[in-house]
Simulated scan of single mutants.
Amino acid sequence: MTPDTITHAMNTLAQQDADIARALPQVGAPSPRQREPGFATFFSTIVSQQLSVEAARSIMGRVNVLLPELHAKAVMDVEGQALRDAGLSWRKIEYAKGLAEAELAGSFSADGLEHLSDEEAIAAITALRGFGRWSAEIYLMFSLGRADIFPADDLALRVALGRLKRLEEKPTPKQARQLVEHWAPWRSVGSLFLWHYYRGEPL
């Protein structure tokens, strides 16, 4: 999603939603976010689960030294203890090996996801051990650039939506999805705006 796409989408959302129209001049439009698509991003997603950004970056630095070319065969060939020494837990090593095995067996294709619909891609990702719907939706948003994704399980997103809508409590994931149905086909941009709004960044 380019800045121009985000500007267009935010203008459309402001026309559709009075709360966005009120908040947009206060905090401005969000910046684009993008991650590389492919196997390496799935591997780094496993590494980063339940870790701070700094800790995950440190571990990935050691992994990149261990595996300069981070692809499925390299992960399958490396000893589990070497990954453990790099900082991965045994559970995450199990997930990483499972990801690599699925890629090599052809039951999962990171590169093939771009040819699938949103729901097909989410189903393919969540079939892997260690990947829930939130991880799948984040991948679709930031690596595949899908425009109409709303990761309702994200806590910050729901807190921000509750503030935006002036609710007494943050909505449940189901309630959040209902509250933003009319944001289609720009729910990914709406999600970016909610994270931006959550941080309360000035113009």
Rank of each mutant, 00 (worst) to 15 (best):
S31N: 09
G112K: 08
A18Q: 15
E120Q: 15
S58M: 04
P32Y: 13
F150H: 06
L104K: 10
A40T: 13
H115C: 02
S188A: 11
L116W: 02
D111I: 04
F108W: 06
G200V: 09
A21L: 04
V63W: 00
V63G: 00
V47L: 12
A105K: 14
G132I: 00
L70T: 13
F108K: 09
I6S: 13
I93F: 10
A21N: 03
E181P: 03
H196F: 02
A121G: 09
G132N: 09
R158L: 07
A40Q: 14
L83E: 01
R163Y: 05
G87M: 09
E120V: 07
T126G: 06
S135T: 00
F42G: 11
H115K: 15
W134E: 10
D148L: 08
I46L: 11
S143C: 15
P37E: 03
K170W: 02
F193C: 06
L116K: 12
M1F: 10
L116C: 03
R129F: 02
L51M: 14
T5R: 14
Q50W: 05
P185I: 06
S31M: 11
H115M: 04
M1T: 11
S48L: 07
N64K: 12
L179I: 01
I6M: 13
P171E: 04
A184F: 05
W183G: 02
G145I: 02
I138D: 04
A14V: 03
P173C: 01
A9E: 14
R33W: 07
W186L: 01
A105R: 12
M10T: 12
Q16C: 04
S109T: 13
L104S: 12
A184V: 08
G132C: 12
E54C: 01
I125Q: 12
F108D: 09
S107P: 00
A55C: 03
